[in-house]
Design a protein around this nucleic acid. Structure first.
Lengths: 79, 79
DNA sequence: GCAATATTCAACCAAATGGTTGACGATTTA
DNA sequence: TAAATCGTCAACCATTTGGTTGAATATTGC
């Protein structure tokens, strides 16, 4: 999907969409390939795998274990 | 886990932690129960179920289907 | 060859976020 | 009973975010 196609349904400037797509690319959620003057964007299927796995574990601990949660967050912040 | 216990490992004010916990409560990610002067916090286990399910679906579409992704986002924004 | 299209950039601005401090009220402890 | 503790509130401030506009570059189409 081209950048202008992504932008089409939104009531905001192309420059703003371009900014968002840059962030999504940097986050690894989408990838972009330039062919001619058009940049083609596509989703990266595995991009949220780790986040999804982490979310599935959310709450698996006993409520008392916010310590474990905090440790996890610290570790994630270090990454 | 009490609010002060949550705050303990972080190098920031209790007021800031309290703000964050208010947001997490409002988001349904944790719940809080006051007993005496202490507020006990616990994770809500199912809080991220919908997000996790959505993330698992991320990328399942053909790359051409950013349309479907957009429709999904619109729908989510309406919710 | 020039106009149109696609896209980004820089500069700008308003709104939102994320923290602090000091004060305060409720509860507990000594 | 007073001090200590727990937690929130309001006000404030700096930073970040999220958008715009106009200009610019690269590419395509007529």
């Amino acid at each position: 999907m081209a950048v202008t196609d992504v932008a089409d349904p939104f009531d905001m400037s192309l420059a703003a969409i371009s900014k968002h797509l840059t962030i999504l690319t940097r986050a690894g959620l989408i990838s972009q390939e330039k062919r001619g003057r058009v940049k083609w964007c596509k989703l990266e299927p595995d991009a949220m795998r780790n986040a999804s796995i982490w979310m599935q574990s959310f709450g698996q601990f006993e409520a008392v274990n916010l310590d474990a949660f905090e440790q996890f967050l610290k570790q994630e912040l270090q990454d």
